[in-house]
Amino acid sequence: MGINWFKYSSPQAFHPLAGKMIPWFSVAAGLLIIIGLYIGFFVAPTDFQQGDSYRIIFVHVPAAWMSMFLYVIMAAWAGVGLGLNARPSFMMAQAIAPTGAMFTFIALLTGAMWGKPTWGAWWVWDARLTSELILLFQYIGIILLRAAIDDLRRADRASAVLALVGVVNVPIIYFSVRWWNTLHQGASVSMTASPKMATTMLTAMLIMTVGFWMYSFAVTLARVRCVILDRERQPMWGNQTSIQEVAEAR
């Protein structure tokens, strides 16, 4: 591989590269989500216990997985940013947060839509549900903390520390159904046991998950381009006649 990866560690070089990758991820996301929805609605049979309400899992489970994956990825970028003092890493972390928050919201809302007909309640203070709600507050906290600090370098570091500290909640969400007696059911899919669901249902859910991954890549790359443009906007020193002008341009 003759690619010089360090070249892309500068925002100026990364901006066009991201632009080239976005269409591919977008097309993949669109196709996978359409195929996933088709299998989920037309191939997968009606569940003998839950009827057709179970079809909500085709968005609920992928969204819930994405909410946790994206948090871990965001925190990893934040950690790299803190360790290497690298601006592009902080920019990636900044670009991931809103998408993660959106998927957390979708997971909570679709969970309520499933809980009402199945459990008879929109919401219960169960360990899984509560820890997922806390995850939403963490995302919002990270976004608001960044917005509250004017100095970009400080905002980067402060929100990175908050993101890293909050990683502790991700295993709590994941293992909550095992550690405590929860109303939320246990894992239907795990690395160690065979899946506890029909193959067509599992296929639809996994395809939707990969589709949501592709969507997340596309939308976070598009957002990081906005962040790069916003943050790298200040003109070059050489073109300016005075420090005053540079300060005003910021």
């Binding site: 009827g51 309400s53 079809r55 968005v59 998408t99 839509m113 009402k116 007909p117 939308v219």
Partner: peptide, 25 residues
Amino acid sequence: GGYGLYVWVSFGVTALCMFGEVLAV
């Protein structure tokens, strides 16, 4: 099968969020 409201609200809100995010970006 009688769960139309719950199923379509779930899928509808998810679609709205995702399209809305794309539009916002």
